[in-house]
Design a protein around this nucleic acid. Structure first.
Length: 790
RNA sequence: GGGCGCGUGGCGGAACUGGAAUACGCGUACGCUUCAGGAGCGUAUGGACGAAAGUCAUUGAGGGUUCGACUCCCUCCGCGCCCACCA
């Protein structure tokens, strides 16, 4: 009997003591390979989802190691964030204490996975030695003009009492509180100018080995649109309102304009008669949450301002309306409305009786458009914009949906923004030598009213001297979004103890960019976008030499409960990894997670499915155990088995490489079933164990030792297959008649076409079906089948 | 509403480039073993008809291309994810 729990402990201790997984930055004769998994938030416990990310990813890392790479597979904790602070308020425990307690628990759980993590490089983003460099990054952004403070309408989560980045708003609600609608609030916020990199962020996606779906999501999120800015002059006033459009070709059909209710010129242009109605509409809009505004999708609303503008191309009068279907934070906050060729404008025009003028025909050519009539849409776009440009009435323009990244958070448990406000000098960055600006001790973590961080309570922290004039000054009390911490953590692993720099050039260059990154798809437009932005900035500033952080990326799917529903305590369908490891051992869990289905697909956890794996391992153990006394056979005499072995070596290696862990496990099962049936030589058993080693590291190590090996199996290299042994000399020829299989026969590979035809036609069964008819056609697929068409 | 993806036995899922559909595992049934419970081992099973050899059907539904379609094309149905008035 194989006692998984006991034996796994044993090997984990041995590996830890011997420093088996400590990674050197350079080993001669080996190429470096940076394998990264997304580090977890220390929420308290490792759940199945974590295991599903980390265990199969470790199988991959172990394969790479055996293939001869010097593999770095680090781990750490994304330790800043709100749950710690909320726990602090609820349980009167310091966020740091709560976080450290969770990290301690999770570390223990992590070690039970049996992964190749190099714990000596562990990082915790809440450590001052780490966030010192997060702050340093902020300063560099600031110096480069990429960090700026701006008063603007921002997404505000009433539950968290803090602002949210656009990426953190899900369906108009807070990403952490799916029941809390986000409201718009005017606040003074620090931002990162991610929009500066919008173009590169799209362009460089091309060279990445990432899931296409993820690349597409980033592309759509950045949302590049090419079009024109067109100037509309307001009648009887000096105001000119620019609009952005992707359809300058439809300009002759622009029969009215719409401003966003938040547009700064609304108040200015509204006529006396319309003032009351407009003001009421603006006030109503402001009161609406983002969610309500979105759900008003069905019925368009709006108010006439009383003002009119001139259509720059034909001088026709365009009445100016306001409506909440025009968003202030896209384009110019104003549109030219072309009801004939835009669904939303059409809806609005219909409701308010505004004329609809058709200017494009069914063949996508312009009609009733002056000198442009008859032109194709694509040509007209170009020509009309050029015409406007010449008359100073417009220009070509590119707009993005991507907004700058608001990084201020009005909370305690994060890296303080290293800025000081002085009455005389204004906002002054903290000098580098003062870093880290440490979080002060605090007792009360309740948010301070008025959108201020609890840090505002810490007088000793707030009151300071101006770095410039040494006069009285106060510190910024907001902390940074935790996504800032995780935007560069993969750089720190390479040199986690460096006190002088976030990482030395040498170490950065020997590891980065990351060769393989494995983690959840939910970060497609959050972490993965931010990290790319950071690397692009660091590259521009000369701190790194690469412009993309993650060369290759793979996502794991989502593990569901055995009922096919999302795992949740209330449903009672949660599979707890600790329980399972205590029962079946980590190897069985690792292997079952690999086996249960396609990695990117995820799927339901099956409690009986694991039993299939433990049975498999038991059978191997029982059969291999007895080999320890037999003498080593040099080669296996069974030719077919040898061929299968070599085919399996190839398949398992390739499957792991392609993240097809499920078929790799099944190939191992097929091979073992054959070995059991035919002959288990010690030689083949050892090769088999090497193939099994990435999946079941403890189990294979144990048997490897039992078979008399002194060194760890994980130092062995991946078996090589002989390509001459892959192909069968003979194969089963499938004989089809009218596409239906009627017979099969073993034939030699080098039989020619005519020979095969003759052979097939001479078969009794075939004769019966053919029955004196002549074959219309005979199709021969080499090495596979022959199809006789009657 | 838009974009992307998916649909294969009782279940999780295989199937290379269009070439024997259901590999591998779970489950189920029977047998052996066991004081018993379980576990283990062996055999069978994959839909229908048949005692069996076998025959026919079959990859959400319908159609098409092809000697041949889970795979490619069209229509429809269902499910999932992402985005959501982006001018």
């Amino acid at each position: 009997m194989y006692n998984a729990v006991k034996i796994e402990k044993k090997w984990q201790n041995i590996w830890e003591k011997s420093g088996a997984y400590k990674v050197k930055d350079k080993i001669s004769g080996r190429d470096n390979f940076y394998h990264l998994v997304m580090f977890p938030y220390p929420s308290g416990n490792l759940h199945m989802g974590h295991w599903y990310n980390y265990a199969p990813a470790d199988v991959y890392a172990r394969l790479k190691k055996m293939q001869g790479f010097n593999v770095l597979s680090p781990i750490g904790f994304d330790a800043f964030g709100l749950p710690a602070e909320n726990a602090a308020i609820k349980n009167k425990i310091h966020p740091r204490a709560w976080t450290n307690k969770n990290i301690a628990t999770m570390k223990k759980q992590f070690k039970s996975i049996g992964a190749v993590y190099d714990w000596s490089r562990e990082i915790i983003t809440a450590d001052p030695e780490y966030y010192k460099w997060t702050q340093w990054m902020f300063l560099k952004m600031y110096e480069a003009g990429l960090a700026y403070k701006k008063k603007s309408l921002a997404n505000w989560c009433p539950e968290d009492q803090a602002v949210l980045a656009n990426e953190q708003v899900v369906n108009g609600r807070c990403w952490r509180h799916p029941d809390t609608p986000v409201i718009q609030k005017e606040v003074d916020q620090w931002m990162f100018k991610i929009t500066d990199c919008a173009d590169d962020l799209i362009k460089d996606l091309d060279g990445l080995d990432w899931p296409e779906r993820t690349k597409l999501m980033q592309k759509n999120w950045i949302g590049k649109s090419e079009g024109a800015i067109i100037q509309f002059a307001i009648h009887d006033s000096q105001f000119i309102i620019p609009v952005f459009t992707t359809r300058p070709d439809t300009l002759f059909g622009a029969t009215y304009m719409v401003l966003s209710p938040e547009h700064p010129l609304v108040e200015e242009i509204t006529t006396k008669e319309q003032k009351k109605a407009v003001r009421r509409y603006v006030a109503d809009t402001r009161l609406k949450s983002e969610l309500e505004r979105m759900s008003a999708e069905k019925e368009k609303t709006g108010v006439f301002t009383g003002a009119c503008a001139a259509n720059p191309i034909n001088g026709k009068e365009a009445p100016i309306w306001i409506s909440d279907y025009v968003l202030m934070n896209y384009g110019t906050g104003a549109i030219m409305a072309v009801p004939a060729h835009d669904e939303r404008d059409f809806e609005f025009a219909k409701k308010f009786d505004i004329p609809v003028v058709k200017v494009i025909d069914e063949k996508d050519r312009l009609i009733d458009s002056g000198e442009f009539t008859g032109m194709a849409v694509s040509e007209a776009k170009e020509k009309i914009t050029a015409w406007l440009k010449k008359k100073n009435l417009g220009d070509f323009s590119i707009q993005y949906k991507l907004r700058d990244w608001i990084i201020s958070r009005q909370r305690y448990w994060g890296a303080p923004i290293p800025i000081v406000y002085c009455d005389r000098c204004g906002a002054v960055p903290a000098p580098e030598k003062d870093l880290p600006i440490k979080l002060p001790p605090l007792k009360n973590f309740q948010p301070v009213g008025g959108g201020k961080s609890p840090l505002a309570r810490a007088a000793s922290f707030v009151n300071t001297k101006c770095p410039k004039c040494r006069g009285k000054a106060v510190r910024e009390t907001d902390t940074m979004d935790t996504f800032v911490d995780s935007s560069w953590y993969f750089l720190r692993y390479t040199d986690s103890k460096n006190k002088k720099r976030f990482a030395s050039d040498n170490k950065l260059n020997s590891w980065l960019p990351v060769d393989m990154y494995v983690g959840g798809a939910e970060h497609a437009v959050l972490h993965l976008l931010y990290a790319r932005f950071f690397v692009k900035v660091l590259k521009k500033l000369g701190y790194v030499t690469f412009n993309e952080p993650f060369k290759a990326l793979r996502h794991q799917g989502i593990i569901l409960g055995s009922d096919g529903q999302k795992m949740s305590k209330s449903r009672g369908n949660v599979a707890d990894p600790d329980d399972l490891v205590g029962k079946y051992g980590a190897d069985a869990i690792r292997m079952y997670l690999c086996f249960m289905g396609e990695y990117s697909q995820g799927g339901p956890w099956s409690p009986t499915g694991v039993l299939g794996i433990t049975r498999f391992l038991e059978r191997i153990y029982n059969k291999f155990f007895t080999l320890r006394v037999t003498t080593r056979k040099v080669a296996n005499s069974n030719k077919e088995l040898t061929k299968l072995l070599h085919r399996t070596i190839k398949k398992v290696g390739e499957d792991i490489e392609n993240f097809r862990f499920n078929t790799a496990v099944s190939a191992l099962m097929i091979l073992f079933n054959e070995m059991e049936r035919k002959d288990i030589s010690k030689n083949n058993a050892e090769t088999f164990l090497k193939l099994l080693a990435p999946f079941a590291p403890h189990f294979s190590e144990e048997l490897w030792a039992i078979l008399g090996n002194k060194k760890s199996i994980h130092l062995e290299s991946w078996p090589k297959y002989k390509s001459t042994l892959l192909e069968e000399g003979d194969y089963e020829l499938i004989i089809q008649i009218n596409g239906k299989t009627r017979d099969k026969i073993k034939v030699s590979k080098n039989m020619g076409r005519l020979e095969l035809e003759k052979l097939a036609l001479s078969r009794e069964i075939v004769k019966k079906y053919v029955d004196n008819q002549t074959a219309k056609k005979i199709i021969v697929v080499p090495n596979r089948l022959i199809n006789i068409v009657l």
